[in-house]
C-alpha cells in the first residue's frame, strides 16, 4: 500500500482538528460519553429517574430507555416503579450522572423497599410542605424587593 492511500490529504487533516477544537466546549461533548450507559437523572421537580441514556441534543433533552423512577424517603426507605422510555425536555433536567454498575446497588442494601404508591403519597406530602414554606419565604422576600427564583412546581 502506498503512503498516499493511508494518510489523508493535509487539508482534510486540518478540518478535523478545527472541528474537534470547537467541539470541546459544547453540551454535546459533555454528555456524549454517557450515551448507552446507565445514568440517573435528577429533575427540577425533585424526581429521580434511572435508565440507559440513548440520545440527547444541545439543550440536554434526553432519551432514557428502560427507565425506573426511584423515590428515596427519610428513614432509609425507597420505592421503584418501572416506566419504560422517557423523553425528557432539557429545561426540566437539574443534573445527570453516569452510574458505575458495579457499585450502584451498594447504597440500596441498607434500604427497605416499600410499595411505590405509598412512597409517592409521602413524597408528594413532603414536596407540598416544602412548597408551603418556600411560598412563605418568597412572600417576605418579595415584600422587601427581592425577587427570588426558587419556584417548585407541585
Amino acid at each position: 500500500m502506498s503512503e498516499t492511500e493511508t494518510t489523508p490529504p493535509a487539508s482534510e487533516d486540518r478540518r478535523e482538528d478545527l472541528y474537534l477544537e470547537s467541539y470541546s466546549f459544547t453540551t454535546a461533548a459533555q454528555i456524549i460519553g454517557s450515551v448507552d450507559r446507565k445514568v440517573f437523572v435528577y429533575l427540577r421537580d425533585e424526581r429521580t429517574i434511572f435508565g440507559v441514556l440513548r440520545t440527547f441534543d444541545q439543550f440536554a433533552n434526553l432519551v432514557i430507555q428502560d427507565a425506573v423512577e426511584r423515590i428515596c424517603l427519610p428513614g432509609k426507605r425507597y420505592a421503584d416503579e418501572e416506566r419504560d422510555t422517557y423523553i425528557i425536555r432539557g429545561e426540566n433536567v437539574t443534573m445527570m450522572g453516569e452510574l458505575d454498575i458495579d457499585k450502584e446497588d451498594q447504597p440500596m442494601e441498607s434500604f427497605t423497599r416499600i410499595p411505590f404508591k405509598e412512597a409517592e403519597r409521602e413524597f408528594k406530602q413532603i414536596q407540598h410542605n416544602i412548597k408551603l414554606s418556600q411560598a412563605k419565604k418568597q412572600e417576605i422576600l418579595t415584600k422587601n424587593g427581592l425577587v427570588g427564583d426558587y419556584i417548585q412546581d407541585p
Binding site: 454528555i31 429521580t48 428515596c72 427519610p74 445527570m96 450522572g97 453516569e98 458505575d100 447504597p107 434500604f111
Partner: peptide, 15 residues
C-alpha cells in the same frame, strides 16, 4: 438521604 446513589456516580452533568 435523597441521593444514596451518589457513591456509584462516576461523573455528573449539571445543567
Amino acid at each position: 438521604v435523597k441521593f444514596p446513589q451518589l457513591v456509584a456516580v462516576r461523573n455528573l452533568f449539571i445543567r
